[in-house]
Amino acid sequence: MERIMISPSRYVQGSGAMKNIGRHILLLGNCALCIGGKRGLQSVEAELRQSCSEHQVTCSLETFRGECSKAEIDRLVGITERLGANVIVGVGGGKALDVAKAVAYYAKLPVAIVPTIAATDAPCSALSVIYSEQGVFESYLVLPRNPDLVLVDTSIIAKAPIRLFVSGMGDALATWFEAEACSKAPALNLPGGLSTAAALCLARLCFDTLLDYGFPAKLAVEKGVVTEAVEKVVEANTLLSGLGFESSGLAAAHAVHNGFTLLPETHAMYHGEKVAFGTLVQLVMENRKTEEIERVIKFCIEVGLPVTLADIGVKQVSDERIYQVAEAVCAGGETVHNEPFAVTVDGVYAAILAADAWGKHCLKEWRN
């Protein structure tokens, strides 16, 4: 079996990086269609236009209508063709970036990605999640390559709501544990191969970076400033987590996230918040040592990530509902089956309740 690692062609990060975006775009094309949500585009428009002008890149802006749907992709491909654009630029959060990647794919053009939040590892991935126009999940569009450019201006990231930044840490927290599980199984990664040693090292670096710098980075972002800790955590949330999950694989944590989407009360929670609780469930399933699990719980409490069912919105806990979640976690094709042991519905059900109890215990002990 082949070992496969994939990644963006160029990754640029730093405070004020938007001032140089025109130079980076020019390596891909000289007529850009920039797609993003209204807030995302507003946050970068002045510097984007100025930098593109300085490097003789024509720049047109088009507001994304909110859903990464086939209809929206088709609309934006039509605009791309009418403008004669030769490069797509995606600006904003997950869905805006996904639609830009899809438009570039169908228009057969290079794509530059400019995240304005560090809430997920989507910016670096070769994947777009397709929804209906009503926001219902339809399919995954697996792309033949990762973005040609990912540019992250940390001064913009630091101005976004702190909850989004912390949610990104929750998503990144799962990277090492899922990568390690896939490696032990062994299970295939997203491009269909086995993980490389490099990808596993990046996944581990992601975890170590979060634990070393996550709390001071949170304090800095609460003040809207960029410190070296913020730079390190943004890289962990975006690049290290992105490379780690794509080139090593997903396991129980993300499957638990998917299972909890059955419960409407969890829909108000961000992806990374639910993944953080899913990580605790995975650690219990794997029978990790007490010290290791409590180290992760302590980190979650420090930065404000969920450690109990109540924290992800599940206030009314019944055996029947949790068992339904466990059944969804274990559905055919779910990534929980990438764990290096046979996974059962009863085992997942027990791990969910045990993780909840452990989180409650730690909250009580450490806050007294």
Rank of each mutant, 00 (worst) to 15 (best):
G333P: 03
L262K: 12
L211S: 03
E286Y: 10
Y270R: 15
S318F: 04
V317W: 13
A255H: 04
V281H: 00
L305W: 01
T261C: 05
A253M: 10
L309R: 05
Q282C: 08
Q282F: 06
V296W: 00
G224I: 05
V221P: 01
T266K: 07
Q324S: 10
S248E: 08
L239V: 09
G304V: 11
D311A: 13
V234F: 01
A326C: 08
D208Q: 14
N237C: 01
I312S: 02
R321N: 15
Y213D: 07
V256P: 06
A203I: 11
I312V: 11
Y270L: 15
C206P: 04
A203V: 11
G333T: 11
D311K: 03
S318D: 13
V284I: 14
E273I: 00
V221F: 06
R288C: 02
A229W: 03
Q316K: 15
Q324L: 15
V275T: 02
E294L: 01
G259S: 05
P306W: 07
F260P: 00
R295N: 02
L243A: 03
L309G: 05
L210I: 06
A331E: 14
E286H: 06
V230I: 12
L309S: 13
A268R: 15
E292Y: 01
T261F: 10
D212N: 15
S241L: 02
A326N: 09
L240K: 05
E273N: 01
L211H: 15
T266P: 11
G259F: 02
C206Q: 07
L262E: 12
G244F: 00
V307N: 07
L210V: 04
V225M: 12
L309A: 10
C330F: 07
N237S: 13
F299S: 05
V314M: 09
D319T: 15
N287G: 06
E294W: 08
V233C: 03
L243C: 15
E291I: 00
P216K: 09
V226D: 08
F245N: 00
E302R: 10
E246Y: 04
E302G: 04
V284R: 02
T335E: 05
T308P: 13
K223C: 14
S241Y: 06
E231Q: 09
I301N: 13
R204K: 14
V233A: 08
N237I: 03
L309C: 01
N258L: 08
G332P: 11
I301E: 10
H337P: 01
D212Q: 13
P216S: 09
P264T: 13
G332W: 07
N287P: 02
L205K: 12
G304N: 03
E294G: 02
S247E: 11
E291S: 03
N237K: 06
E235N: 05
